[in-house]
Amino acid sequence: MSEHTIHTPILQLTDVRKEYGSDGITTEVLHGISLTMEQGEFTALIGPSGSGKSTLLNIIGLLEQPTGGSLLMQGRETGTMPEEELTRLRGKSIGFVFQFHHLIPAFTALENVMLPLMLEEGRLTPEQRERAVWLLTRVGLADRVDFKPGKLSGGQQQRVAIARALAVNPPLVLADEPTGNLDTAAADGIFKLLYEINRESGTTFLIVTHDPRLAKRCSRVVELVDGRVVS
């Protein structure tokens, strides 16, 4: 049992396919993707537009169900899970960083980070608040905890989004072009931050990026072309 646990990958996709369409007219956007990610990996997912990167990320993030194949999250088959269980698993195991950060404007940075904690526990504890403050400090926003998103720069907002993604200490963080909306300096800063967190905590990262310069700095690069993994 313990041996099995040690070697269980964070993520294991086998022959994952995804089709869209109805009334007999379908388009297959993922053609049998097989991919394994171990704990602590820092992986870039690259590929041209329309290659299926976002679809793959959504399937890994349990936001979409594949049409075929299997997806094991920490060894658990997700294809047969009811929606409520998928939601719970997503809340506990996966952090998301979006290109447009999607912070709630009326909340302070601290409240945005505390949101997943509150949703997980159903209430807020002093320990959760401490963790949220610690995370904001870790991403370099100790002096901005009570700022609302409108008062923060794009890079700072993305840092809040990263802290929010790490709030429940998920083993896997999915980042969909997290630097795509930032200038080069800010993008470098964000990428460096993600890498440092990966080194410190062993959190697994899968980062969709169009930037080959950043992709080269990842420990692994998965390239997707026309819905197939080519490298």
């Binding site: 719970r88 997503r90 949101l115 949703l119």
Partner: peptide
Amino acid sequence: SPEIALMKAVGADRFQ
């Protein structure tokens, strides 16, 4: 809808 979508993405269930 963005607020709802975000809550769902970060783990809000149907009840919440």
